[in-house]
Design a protein around this nucleic acid. Structure first.
Lengths: 336, 336
DNA sequence: TTGTAGGCGTTATCAG
DNA sequence: CTGATAACGCCTACAA
């Protein structure tokens, strides 16, 4: 393994000089020396040892992408098609900026803290944080953190979020405009101050605004895995007390549609369905899924921007970006 | 930050002793000392500094998951729903075994080698390697490598693969048994010694075995992104010289189905479609997609097993596992 | 059973 | 402009 020392010897200078060149402190070194050093670096194929750097500088250029998992749940952030879409985007931008991405699933705050110290992690991405003990732990951390889709805030964090409330409102409002009066709501567990909660509020307010009653019996909380959503669809197909469903995720909406079809009913003729996210899947179901669009790659890009600014101690005027949503009309909602 | 030294001082022993305890060399330390040290570690919240360890041991417990990207192509391994399914599985198992996962997209072998040296990467996962310059570079590396879905082999690598040939054969054979005689083949670029190539061979041989002619004009190579596959579907719908399509990936099959439907034809009445992978999506399209099943999470698990054995220098009888495929009949193929 | 000392590759400080 | 030297946290001979 080629080290800085090897370079120094080959060129006939000291380690310090080599280090200075590598770190761009060119003011202190003669142009000629710089050239020779760079040539030798090229020739010998020198690559910096990040461990050594990290050791001496207490910082590592490692960015953690944390998937906070409830114990014993068998899913991960990457398995969610929506999230995996911007992990890719994050990795590339990070990489372009000279950072490295570690993926880590943690269950407890202790695990998280250990991980951070293990590697002198420089920054963190976190999705879907709630106002709980976990958030407490996060806010006590001294490294830059970028939250994604989180309705909590703290002075040393940034957040890139979405118009979730408006999304819920828009979806419901659209259904109402299409003549629906009895609208079911399907989502994973609704937790206070979470993304789903906001969409839920939007749903309720759209109802209220149209003087439609909110009917708790039409709220269905369910896991997002295939089996659960499909069987929810079957269950919904058996009922006759509503004409449309708003699902807070496309994968859920698609599962519900499949279940409805299995039960021998039709979307949108018997039941209308609207989703949320606008992932590719929406264009692969039939009927194609009407949904609320959000820009996942952009979310990733903005998140990385935030983190970069935080890491470089740049002034940040706004610590939060809220991305807009928009309605994408396809064919899963019927006008009645 | 608590170090080994702090522990040593607190307990009143030397660093060596603490180190011995941490690394389980309990033979050399008295039971009492071990206890006191462990208590103090707990109390002070000591966490090992991996950079320091890595520096002194030239090994880091970092495992790289490499996404080998053609330059300027805007996709990543995590964006493929099939691959992301087992990255999750990999991360968890790795984590349970005390390893860390770095995700990295590389375009050139130089980038890859730099990355490995930067972090003293201990092992590597790699998907879809071909017999090319990149493979050359890999085989000269001295660290354990586990290939996934690769038809190349080398003494210091393991491979977890799939019965791709059989999959291609089975899919085609099934279509033939259902009475189809003119069968199109849709896939991304067919590269020699690649997964797709094997499936293609299976397709051709099934045709030959049934004395059906191989018609090159029915082979469609296309990118896997949504737009490409859907437009391929539209294109296929316009032709009348075949009755069924075998697509080598479910996302492709689903896109093709969508395109066919857009063009006003029906699956399976006008054109039958069979896919490959059996991802969740298959159960969300209508008709549901008949496909060749493979077990993605198992693939991940086996890959990690291989790597663990390699890392621990265990004897490995077989350096390769080929997972079985099976046909899953749903509703996208018509008997004619 | 425990301790001492040297070194892993890099950076930073300070002197020349 | 350049070079010693110490330090980061940990491990491993070797010594006691």
């Amino acid at each position: 393994m080629t080290t800085i020392k090897d370079i120094a010897q080959a060129v006939g200078v000291s380690c310090t000089t080599v280090s200075n060149v590598i770190n761009g402190r060119s003011g202190r070194v003669s142009a000629d020396t710089i050239l020779r050093i760079n040539e030798t670096i090229e020739m010998l194929g020198y690559v910096p040892n990040m461990s050594a750097r990290s050791l001496v500088s207490s910082s590592s250029r490692v960015i953690g992408v944390i998937s906070h998992l409830a114990p014993h749940k068998n899913e991960s952030i990457v398995e969610d098609p929506f999230h995996s879409a911007f992990i890719g985007s994050i990795e590339r931008t990070l990489s372009e900026n000279g950072y490295y991405l570690m993926l880590r699933t943690v269950e407890t705050t202790a695990e998280l803290v250990a991980f951070l110290r293990n590697w002198n992690v420089d920054g963190l991405f976190f999705t879907g944080v709630f106002q709980d003990e976990f958030f407490q732990a996060l806010s006590e951390l001294s490294i830059p953190i970028v939250l994604i889709d989180s309705y909590v805030s703290h002075s040393n964090m940034c957040n890139v979020g979405l118009e979730d409330y408006k999304g819920g409102y828009t979806a419901t409002r659209y259904l109402i405009e299409q003549g629906h009066k009895d609208i079911a709501f399907a989502s994973p567990t609704i937790r206070e101050r979470g993304v789903v909660y906001e969409r839920f509020l939007g749903y309720k307010n759209a109802l209220a605004e149209a003087s439609l009653p909110f009917r708790p019996e039409l709220v269905f909380e369910q896991e997002l895995d295939l089996n659960s959503t499909v069987s929810l669809g079957r269950k919904l197909a058996k009922r006759n007390d509503f004409t449309a469903v708003f699902a807070t995720a496309d994968i859920m909406a698609a599962g519900i549609m499949a279940g409805i079809h299995e039960a021998g009913k039709k979307v949108p003729d018997d039941i209308s369905v609207i989703g949320f996210d606008d992932i590719n899947l929406c264009q692969l179901t039939s009927p194609k899924l009407t949904t609320i669009h959000q820009d996942a790659p952009l979310k990733g890009k903005l998140a990385v921007n935030f983190l970069m600014n935080l890491l470089e101690n740049k002034k940040i005027e706004e610590r939060e970006v809220i991305l807009p949503i928009s309605l994408v009309e396809r064919n899963s909602v019927k006008k009645i």
